[in-house]
Simulated scan of single mutants.
Amino acid sequence: MIRQALLLGLVLLLVGCSGGGGSRPSASGQVGADSTAASSGERYALSGDAYPQDPPDVSEVPNAEPRREPLSRGGNRSPYEVWGKSYEVLADASGYVREGKASWYGEKFHGYATSNGEIYDMYTMSAAHRSLPLPSFARVTSQNNGRSVIVRVNDRGPFHSEREIDLSYAAAARLDILDRGTGRVRVEAIDVDQWLTNKATTAQPQAPPASPVPASVEVGSAVPSTPSGNDVHDAEEGVFLQVAALGSAESAKALKTRLESELSQPVRVASVTGTHRVQVGPLSHVDQANPVRDQLRRAGFAQAFIVHSED
């Protein structure tokens, strides 16, 4: 009996979550196993999870900030077994891209130990994944609305074959999948070294280019203002492919940045009365939209549609 209890405790520490979460720390700070709930399956039943009773506003919770971290001592054993099925942990997350269903885990696991021994905080940008190394960072993008978040993966799960990732309450709220419980997403592991290199390059101050005075304007006279090319009041004319209409300016800007890195076309955010429309273009004519739409479909945005500058 003692041997069986010890084995059960080790399995629980490794698993951390089946829909998310782990075991609550004891008063000493050591991880303890709730063997009664675990053995009955009640603790790991998805239907047993719940919304927090009085949740804070998580709309402004910042994305996880990718950084170099050593692999956790816990949660990276490979292979490992859960419910009779074996799983492999990737040695390196580089290049990992998958599309699938995201679920979320909340109140039932809040304050419990994750698979790598940290404490699960549902109000931060974190996630559970079956095979990504712990910790690692990933961009998760909703395929329903184009919203995107960056999460730190520090837990194992979900152990439901049709699901790709388990998100924290905050991450799920930002992607607007709380009410439905699940949502289609694209998961892209972040190369931390490349991320930090890009961040350092972006942070370097650059002198603004000199603005030449038009030949038709005399020196000393007022120079006619020109459109900024930045989003709201663009004077661009032509055809655009609208990818998403979002309520968050930050999310729209993040989606614009991502699309600019994946497409060979310009991207703008047209903002009017609190709605931020992410649009690819201008395109010179409607026929040019088809190959761009194909690129968007491959990137996970199959709902793009044509709009005109006056729309």
Rank of each mutant, 00 (worst) to 15 (best):
P291T: 07
R24L: 08
E250N: 06
E81R: 07
V223P: 07
V140M: 08
R3S: 09
A203T: 01
G95P: 09
T182F: 12
L134E: 02
A138Q: 10
F109R: 08
S225F: 11
G75R: 01
F109W: 06
R73A: 00
R68C: 00
L196I: 10
L90H: 07
A50W: 09
V280S: 06
F305D: 12
G75Y: 00
D121V: 03
A254M: 11
G247A: 06
E65H: 11
V140I: 12
A91V: 12
L7Y: 08
H110F: 03
S211F: 08
V31Q: 14
Q53H: 09
S94T: 15
G74E: 00
V280A: 05
S115C: 04
D57P: 09
D193Q: 15
V280P: 07
K101I: 15
L90A: 13
P55R: 07
G229M: 06
V267D: 09
N230H: 11
V267A: 13
G220C: 10
N76H: 02
S211H: 08
D57L: 11
Q4P: 00
A64Y: 02
V11W: 06
I177P: 03
G157Y: 01
G247H: 06
A252Y: 02
S126Q: 07
A102N: 05
E88N: 10
V15T: 10
A302M: 11
V267Q: 13
V223N: 04
Q295G: 12
V267L: 13
V292T: 03
V82D: 05
G20N: 01
P70H: 00
S126G: 03
A171E: 01
S161K: 14
P56A: 08
S47W: 12
K101P: 02
G21R: 05
G41E: 13
P227Q: 03
V15H: 02
A102R: 06
E310L: 14
H233K: 13
G238C: 03
R77D: 01
E81I: 06
H160R: 09
F301G: 09
V219A: 12
R130P: 09
L167F: 04
N144E: 14
S72A: 09
Y120E: 01
L71F: 02
P209F: 12
Q265R: 15
V232T: 11
V232L: 11
E310Y: 15
Q206S: 14
S284M: 10
A127T: 05
L296E: 08
S72V: 00
S142T: 07
L46N: 15
